[in-house]
């Protein structure tokens, strides 16, 4: 520490200022959810339960945003018609 600062010089607090959407959590994933649109009954439970806001409803069908999906498998487990399956990540 170079010098001691009084309370008037200290900053008020830390302000996190960048949106966390810049940070892609998708690379945490080992298994990826894949939606079978023929089986999907559009009950929205995956959209409601997804902890990472990675399930998106575009007005007609369910999309998965693989930028943020951490691959927990909650959507596949909660799907009442088993339209979502967890498949291994494709390897290049």
């Amino acid at each position: 520490m170079a010098e001691l600062r009084g309370y008037k010089e200290l900053p008020i607090g830390a302000i996190p200022f960048r949106l966390s959407t810049d940070y892609k959590t998708g690379d945490w994933r080992a298994l990826r959810p894949v939606v079978d649109h023929n089986k999907c009954v559009k009950c929205m439970l995956c959209w409601i339960y997804c902890p990472d806001m990675a399930v998106i409803w575009d007005g007609e069908k369910i999309l998965i945003n693989y930028d943020y999906c951490k691959g927990c498998g909650l959507c596949a487990h909660e799907c009442p018609v088993k339209a979502i399956t967890m498949e291994p990540e494709p390897t290049e």
């Binding site: 940070y23 990472d52 806001m53 498998g73």
Partner: peptide
């Protein structure tokens, strides 16, 4: 809550917040 938070995969806390 926006995506990109670093709670564990399968955590229930963001579901409650959401």
């Amino acid at each position: 809550l926006l995506p990109g938070h670093r709670l564990c995969a399968g955590c229930a806390a963001p579901i409650i917040v959401k």
